[in-house]
């Protein structure tokens, strides 16, 4: 038994069994975000992939890997997007080191 099952991705709609009104609102928003707009579907799929890796959601990683490929991206482009997102995540952690330095300085002579 795993906590994550691949098949559960296709069961996402079951969340809507309870409070379907909320799920419908979520789905309308979610799908509208995917459409071609000022950004292309391909750019959006790469953003989706980068965010998925950072939030470490296996379902989203699977889905956005496929949708990146299906929107014409290749593995180099996908990997660059994932590196950028991960680097921002690393940087976002590291800059909190300033908090530590501040705290250190505050109590140090």
């Amino acid at each position: 038994m795993h906590y994550y099952n691949e098949e559960d991705l296709t069961r996402f709609g079951e969340i809507g069994k309870a409070r379907p009104d909320l799920f419908e609102k979520f789905m309308a928003w979610y799908q509208a975000c995917q459409e071609d707009g000022a950004l292309s579907k391909r750019e959006k799929a790469l953003i989706g992939l980068a965010v998925s890796v950072v939030v470490q959601c296996p379902y989203c990683i699977d889905a956005y890997t496929q949708s990146s490929l299906e929107n014409g991206s290749n593995i180099e482009q996908m990997t660059e997007a994932m590196h950028l997102a991960s680097a921002i995540r690393g940087g976002a952690s590291l800059i909190h080191g300033i908090q530590s330095h501040n705290a250190h300085d505050k109590i140090s002579m």
């Binding site: 292309s40 579907k41 391909r42 496929q66 490929l69 299906e70 929107n71 014409g72």
Partner: peptide, 8 residues
């Protein structure tokens, strides 16, 4: 996987 949109 499926192909991307032809025009893009």
């Amino acid at each position: 996987f499926l192909p991307a949109a032809q025009t893009a």
